[in-house]
Design a binder for these strands. Sequence first.
DNA 1: CGGTGCATGTAAGGCGTTACATGATTCA
DNA 2: TGAATCATGTAACGCCTTACATGCACCG
Lengths: 193, 193
Amino acid sequence: MALRHAVLAALLDGEYSGYQLAKIFDLSVSNYWHAVPQQLYAELTKLESEGLITGRRIIQHDRPNKRVFTVTQAGIDELERFAAVPAKPGIIRENLLVMVQAVDHISTPAVIAQLEDRALASAAKIAIFERTLEHLRGDLDEETYLRTGSPIGPYLTCLRGLRFEQENREWFESTAQLLRDRAIAHAEEGKPS
Amino acid sequence: MALRHAVLAALLDGEYSGYQLAKIFDLSVSNYWHAVPQQLYAELTKLESEGLITGRRIIQHDRPNKRVFTVTQAGIDELERFAAVPAKPGIIRENLLVMVQAVDHISTPAVIAQLEDRALASAAKIAIFERTLEHLRGDLDEETYLRTGSPIGPYLTCLRGLRFEQENREWFESTAQLLRDRAIAHAEEGKPS
DNA sequence: CGGTGCATGTAAGGCGTTACATGATTCA
DNA sequence: TGAATCATGTAACGCCTTACATGCACCG
């Protein structure tokens, strides 16, 4: 019952179709809200029927037609009410950390390999976020943009996504390294020749 | 279809009842896997019926009786298979960040207040994690524990939880400060007397 | 001519959340 | 006496995930 607010917040920055929203969710909104395309199509239908967004059909000749959506005043009011009640604490689900939790009882190489993969994926995301931030602030340096730039919301959430991925990457890399070292030390134990 | 692995991983470090697990999930496992008590009771029943854990009734006289669970060899095998397939990317759902994303279009004071609340909550969690880490490593200093201590899995996931909350706290505080400053600057605009 | 991207949707089944229910003991 | 802690469970509903379905345009 809260995906609706993530969709409304994402639509504040422009008109988007379900397909476009899906891509936006995939690469930037996913920092703070995970959703797959089918959820978005369903949610857009519901939001429109409740009058929180309005759709507009765009005829395209080179590509399939699409419907783009805009937040209505009722939608903004809904976001206002949403911000007025205390947010539930965030939820996280990270399978890789479940594996690390169990690492004393299962074979380590599989876990190490996954940590390395994810470190690379994080590095790629970091690069994307840095470019996104540059693009958002345009000519201004970061300090100036933070003081006076607009819109500030998307910039702040992107900044948080960047730091989260940097943190991820460091932890993935150092944890992989540590497990490798311990595996070697453990192997040496038997044959200290 | 993945809560089961989080439960198995948590049960690796000892015998726990549903109620005890619920508390563990609430304060430490929630760093990487969110679940409410009712989910755990249901999952324990299922895991036992599948033979991945075994239950043992404990009669208590001062308190209600309880059933504690242990991971079986079949349970460890299941974790092994789990670690062998690539983990799905993690999912996050954080309402507070949805509000920040929308902050250019809604009233800021509500968002600022929530950021401040969450900064305090993060500070409390940080203190708990620091004590947990101290407790886990006992006499050893961190460097030595990381090289040779055991179990290492719970230590590593707790370390990640700690860093995540430190990151959260910094971002919550600096974002609240920034929004306050911008609100003042914006108010001054109209009356530069 | 086959794959990728654009664009949207239905349907089934599994998972998660919330509310409700029970009942004993300890502490203020 | 009332609230909090311990301890577990059922049931309903809603959300989420996955698979399946369609169809055009473009690129190689």
